[in-house]
Structure formats: C-alpha cells, structure tokens
C-alpha cells in the first residue's frame, strides 16, 4: 500500500523530469553531441591503428558516457533549483526516497539513451564487430548505467546546491565510480573479445553486487542529504 504510493510518486517525478527534458530537447541533443565528440577525441588520442582502437573501445565507450553523463546529473536538479521548485517538492508528503527514485529513473532513461548512441558510434569509429553475445552486452550496459546513475544522482543532490558544482561533482563522483567503471569496462572488453576466458559473467555479477550496495547506501542517506 505505502509502497504503491511511493512508486506512484517516484513515477510522477520521473515523468515530470523527462517531460521537461523532452520539451527542451536541447539538453539531450547537446549532451549526446558532446559524448560523440569525446569519442572522436579518444580516436585521435589513440591514433589510426585499428588494433589499438579496437582494444581501447570499451574504455573509451564508458568514459565518454561518464563525462557526458555528469552534465545530466547536475542538470536534473538545476531546473528545479533555478525555478525555486525544490523546496515545494520537498513539502509534499511521503518519503524523500520516492523523489530520489524518480530522479534516478529519469536519469537512467537519459543515460541509457546516451549509451545507445555512444555504443553505436564507438562500434563504427573503433572498428568493433557486433559481438555474438550482444544480449550480454545489453546486460552490462543496463547494470553499468544503473551504477553510474545511482551515484551520479546522489552526489549531484549535493554538488548542484554548492558553490563550484562543476568541479565538485566529478571530484566526488569519479573516484567513487572506480569499482563500477572497472567492472563495466572489463565485462565489455571480455564480451567484445568473444569472452574466451568466460569472465564476463563474473564481472556482471560483481557489477550487480556493486549496484545493490550503492543503491541501498544511497537510499538510506538521501533523506538526510536532500533536507540539509
């Protein structure tokens, strides 16, 4: 009962965020363009060597999604802060975690769309063939994105309301994301290499474990963070 109420509230928040995003459009388009630009720059950094490009593709893919995604996390609070809408939103009855869950879902959709573009572009740019185990790759993207978005949404709740938010969010977020990124990159790499060593499964389970730990920890602490 209570859960259904919270779920409805979370959905409402997610829907509101996504609607704002869809109406403005400029936000997603420019972030996606930035992600592609970062991929191209990675390509230049690696040089024209096909093998080197192929080997670096998993890293480039996740890092460009990360660098571009960071902009989305601050934005997701920025719209409300600019409109002075965060305070009224907090006055609504119900637990704060439904607000967090809503933001999480909206950011997830945003970053998942971004990932779709980034993957297609990097497959082309880095000469990577679509792997036979592509459903597994989707799993990696799913859980990797959840990890990224969970910590990103959580830290943005603080960084976006502080001075120097542009620096603070990556500074807080990137070191925390090391385990998630490492697992996601290694799983992606294993799958793109044909998973000869059968290690992709292990990395994916590790990724799921990280996601669970961070989801629980952030849901517990978000109430404090958003009210302060």
């Amino acid at each position: 009962m209570a859960f259904r109420d919270e779920w409805a509230r979370a959905r409402a928040v997610a829907w509101k965020d996504l609607t704002t995003e869809r109406r403005s459009k400029a936000g997603f388009n420019s972030v996606a363009a930035l992600a592609v630009t970062i991929l191209v720059l990675f390509g230049f950094a690696l040089g024209p060597d096909t093998e080197a490009a192929r080997a670096a593709a998993p890293g480039a893919l996740w890092l460009s999604a990360l660098f571009a995604g960071v902009l989305a996390f601050n934005r997701s609070y920025q719209v409300e802060l600019d409109g002075g809408a965060l305070e009224p939103l907090l006055l609504y009855p119900g637990a704060r975690r439904s607000l967090f869950a809503g933001k999480l879902m909206a950011n997830f959709v945003f970053v998942a769309l971004l990932m779709a573009i980034v993957i297609v572009v990097s497959l082309v740019l880095f000469h990577v063939a679509v792997p036979a185990a592509w459903p597994m790759l989707l799993l990696v993207v799913l859980f990797g994105t959840i990890g990224l978005v969970t910590l990103g949404t959580f830290y943005a709740a603080m960084a976006s309301r502080s001075r120097a938010r542009e620096v603070l969010l990556p500074l807080l977020l990137f070191p925390m994301l090391v385990p998630v990124l490492l697992a996601a990159m290694q799983a992606t790499k294993a799958i793109l290499d044909g998973d000869i060593m059968h290690e992709a499964g292990a990395w994916i389970s590790l990724l799921v474990a990280f996601d669970l730990i961070f989801l629980i920890a952030t849901f517990f602490t978000f109430d404090y963070v958003i009210e302060a």
């Binding site: 830290y155 603080m158 807080l172 090391v178 920890a217």
Partner: peptide
C-alpha cells in the same frame, strides 16, 4: 555536516569495494 557525513560514510564503504575490484582486475 550532513553532506560530508554522507560522503564520508559512502567513501568509507567504498574502500573495501575498490580494493576487491582492483584485485580482481
């Protein structure tokens, strides 16, 4: 106080997780 407490708790939690993931890697 509240924010740094949250960052401190999550950061401390992350220490064993980082260690484990790097060791696997």
């Amino acid at each position: 106080g509240v924010w740094s407490a949250a960052v401190g708790i999550l950061g401390a939690l992350n220490v064993p997780i980082v260690y484990m993931s790097v060791r696997w890697w």
